[in-house]
């Protein structure tokens, strides 16, 4: 039990540090196009919570499979949804008077 409590506490401190880092790196000016990278620490924190507090590695194999399937389908969902905006070419519209 003591080992579990120590792990929980260590994870809490690590999560606090990453959250503070995430907040800190958001303060300096960064180009708008690259700012979504600020979600990267959040992704790391989400993985740590799943592995630590949700004990994913200790879960039954089928539960780990469900978790992986969730991530897999999320990647498919986000990837397919963004193919349109990321690949669409925007052409300037010219106004033709008298046509």
């Amino acid at each position: 039990m003591r080992k579990r409590h120590r792990l929980n506490l260590l994870l809490l401190l690590v999560l606090f540090c990453i959250a503070a880092l995430e907040f800190g790196v958001s303060l300096p000016p960064v180009p708008a196009a690259t700012r979504p990278i600020l979600a990267l620490p959040a992704a790391i924190m989400a993985v740590l919570v799943a592995l630590g507090y949700m004990r994913l590695l200790d879960a039954p194999a089928i539960a780990r499979g469900f978790a992986m399937a969730g991530i897999f389908w999320l990647a498919i969902l986000l990837g397919l949804a963004m193919t349109d905006p990321l690949t669409r070419t925007i052409y300037a519209v010219t106004r033709q008077i008298g046509s």
Binding site: E22, F23, S26, P28, R35, A42, M45, A46, V49
Partner: peptide, 16 residues
């Protein structure tokens, strides 16, 4: 976890 993901996209990305 949901809040961990929502936090940067709501509060941080638009700033700076």
């Amino acid at each position: 976890i949901v809040w961990i993901v929502l936090y940067p996209v709501i509060y941080l990305v638009g700033r700076g």
